[in-house]
Design a protein around this nucleic acid. Sequence first.
DNA 1: GCATGTCATGTTAGCGCTATCATTAACACG
DNA 2: CGTGTTAATGATAGCGCTAACATGACATGC
Lengths: 333, 333
Amino acid sequence: MPTMADVARHAGVSSMSVSRALKNSDLVSEATRERIFKAIDELGYVLDLSAGSLSSKRTGFVAAIVPSINNSNFADTARGITNELENTGLQLLLAYNEYSVEREESLIEAMLRRRPEGIILTGGIHTGRARRMLENAGIPVVETWDLPAKPIDQVVGFSNADAMSLLVKTLAAKGYRKFAYIGGTTERDTRGNQRRAGFQAAIAELGLPEGRVVSFGVPPISMEQGAQAMGSVLSQWPDTEVAICVSDLSAFGALMECHRRGLKVPKDIAVAGFGNYEIAACCHPRITSVDIECYEIGRLAARKLINTIQNPEHPSRSELVLTNIRVIEREST
Amino acid sequence: MPTMADVARHAGVSSMSVSRALKNSDLVSEATRERIFKAIDELGYVLDLSAGSLSSKRTGFVAAIVPSINNSNFADTARGITNELENTGLQLLLAYNEYSVEREESLIEAMLRRRPEGIILTGGIHTGRARRMLENAGIPVVETWDLPAKPIDQVVGFSNADAMSLLVKTLAAKGYRKFAYIGGTTERDTRGNQRRAGFQAAIAELGLPEGRVVSFGVPPISMEQGAQAMGSVLSQWPDTEVAICVSDLSAFGALMECHRRGLKVPKDIAVAGFGNYEIAACCHPRITSVDIECYEIGRLAARKLINTIQNPEHPSRSELVLTNIRVIEREST
DNA sequence: GCATGTCATGTTAGCGCTATCATTAACACG
DNA sequence: CGTGTTAATGATAGCGCTAACATGACATGC
């Protein structure tokens, strides 16, 4: 593989000129630039950024950890990050932790070894060692998708509990009284748990009959698990008026289960989801959901990092960005 | 930020011993190892891989480019790659090209600047410069999701045309004769175009009435666009017996459009998709589809890279891996 | 004509690590 | 007791690039 020195020799210049030309510095004359690019082309040279970053102390990496890449909500956030990073010279280092803070910890270490210039995390719960590593790293950190009680640095998120509570209240205002909740079992999906807490809080606040909660499957629960959970709701509490699901995917599964059982939605039972996935807007009947601007979360988080990286003296720290949540009422309620 | 030399000084050893300890080399005594890790812990040291890779000539990166990260088929492939890479010391550098070979070209350059030890691409069509860069890079390349006419190096894929043709033949065997095809418009989605070609070929081969093709929307076409395309099929050719869609997402949209129009599926019209997405197995009626082992494609592609990286002298080149395709008949046909 | 400024280019050093070879210590063996 | 063998550690050099400074060429102004 040719090095920059090879290119410099071939073009009859010093390697600093090659470096400058490749950085689009205007300190290179047009004639020299042309000769350099001709040499680059002839040798098939490709700049080695890892060598460059060692010397310039800038790796050009931004790290992000999401729970899952197979979930279109988080994929949207990743897309928002990537798109905002475009043309900033920063590259995304993406990983997923499968909803595990232990896995997050080891991913954080793996990423910090690459010396990213900033890092975006999902959620506000991390292991002690992870927090320590992040605090020592000396780079901006953005926690997203949540409102951490004790933020590490910057935050772009929303309250999952409030969002779910808002959904319950909206539906209660339409006259529904007997609510069921479908979610996953374990403690791992902290955002799911907060949604459940928001559900319970709203039920209590409104003085409605006790919420009927079905916990089923390891989060993130699938369409199929949503269907099974709905079966469980219907057999335990046949008079349920509305089933609220931790996500649109489980809501869709629940809806299909109703179809199969010959129940009309929303006449016999109403169904609502969370996350405003494409499927909620497209299925029949269309599912009422809560929109949470996933793409925007990614975009804003990346923007915050870029601002901090580009103006290190003027950090936008401790300034919390609250993204919009919005109930979208559709045919299923 | 502390460096390895700081750790070495703190532990009273040379930096080589620190380096060895961090690499789990067995050339470090237990006592020294303990002292070193104590120092690492006290200083909050994190290894800098970019400095290490400059000297060791191994970056520990593997690059992958997929068309989109918001498509669960490709997300499955990315997941397969990541999971196979686990515990090999290799880290994934993931990007998406939005189905554009031009964007792919610039992504390939951006990735090669990080000196990945291997690269995984989606599809077999690339720009000339992209091909040249890859051939010069001196690293293993795996093309996936397709059977390129002129592979760059290694291949893990299947024939999109054959897969679609198999679906048509399976349905024709059940007695369907009037076929419609729903896909995207432009030339960008090469796999979509190959599926269409496979559809046409099968129709011709079987001597069926001319296929009715609706091209609608920029690929990847959405659920909503599938619904609109189905509207177009039904108004142009009301006697269509089965609508085959380029993906399950559009098939689902088409199915919902039938629901809304009061058409019974499959009694009034049958619907089939492609890709065996979660939704196809879960909606009502469940959609007949073609399973293409997306996760396995990622896993096998990563495995090929790992093999080539770990045994450079014994390259597994030019050995094509054909993944399984399988029609899954469900309630919608 | 000479000081001054500006632009283009080169020189030097060093980023933080690891490959390689050298060295030392400890021990076994005839 | 000398020799060889092995295990643990250290010293040195250099990976390929860029920051920082130095230099030289030319133009400008008085």
